[in-house]
Design a protein around this nucleic acid. Structure first.
Lengths: 147, 147
DNA sequence: TTGATACAGGATAATGGAGTCTGTTATCGA
DNA sequence: TCGATAACAGACTCCATTATCCTGTATCAA
């Protein structure tokens, strides 16, 4: 079971972070990304497609084709990727699942959860893939290793 | 899509909070809880069953049967309910879905997410259903209303 | 122009969580 | 003791997410 994000969104985040570690302009194949990150190729293909449509990635068909970032790393925030794939409902829905949870009819943990949720949002909105590039590189590097 | 908790866990939290608002010792039927909270009866039955097995609720069979809290409200923390139904994996797994995310091989947001996750844990571990009783009462009261 | 490459995208299949159904067991009251 | 009630237990169905397959289309190079 995945927490918070859908599997597709997790894969999307991983993929974009991976692509951000490559030399600028290098076109990478879906197949390569899938292998590196251990993601089902066809599933990943759809996710990268969605990210292309939203401008987060840019795709090229044909031989010498592949994917590159759609805009400079400094302009791709983690929240952009989440928004493209899962939408923003995580940041609006009640954590207890109560219907109509709002300031007028708050659930028992409305305020406390709201605070935490805001922090989570701000984290995702502050961090660009440029900011975490070094961390991405070392995490990706650790993937092949037998842990 | 439910965030963080499974649907069953959301229902369980709602149900226990609801039961905590009733007069002490009052045995309530699954059917009544399900109606009040708009939860499928049979599904709720299973969830309350699990909570009985963990001692969070206490059940009585037969006519005049029903459910009551398994121990004093002050001794039932929200985290107990979550743990009984969803387990603790939310607090250990990587938010980006990276395998082997740890202090040695942290994902790009390991530290920042860890901080938020700890806050969420502490909130659920601090709050007992006694603490939020008043809030539960007013939230439950708002449920019938056309919002 | 042709063949190979690689993304696009619709259609289909598998999986797991969510929800349903049926029969059993325990308790109460007559 | 018997019938009614209500939780218990587990098998079953349903559906959304996840994953796969296959054909189409764009691009490049020879």
């Amino acid at each position: 079971m995945s927490i918070i994000f859908s599997k597709g969104c997790e894969y999307g985040l991983q993929a974009v972070l991976y692509i951000s570690t490559l030399e600028e302009g290098r076109r990478i194949l879906i197949k390569e990304v899938a292998e590196k990150l251990q993601i089902p190729v066809h599933f990943l293909a759809k996710i990268l497609q969605q990210l292309s449509q939203k401008g987060i990635l840019k795709s090229y068909k044909g031989s010498k084709g592949g994917f590159v970032l759609g805009r400079p790393p400094k302009e791709i925030r983690l929240i952009d990727i989440v928004n493209a794939l899962d939408g923003m409902s995580i940041f609006t829905e009640c954590i207890l699942g109560f219907p109509g949870c709002s300031t007028e009819h708050p659930c028992p943990v409305h305020d406390k959860w709201g605070k935490i949720r805001t922090e989570a949002y701000e984290m995702l909105a502050d961090e660009t893939i440029a900011d975490v590039k070094e961390k991405s590189i070392s995490k990706i590097a650790s993937l092949g290793m037998d842990s």
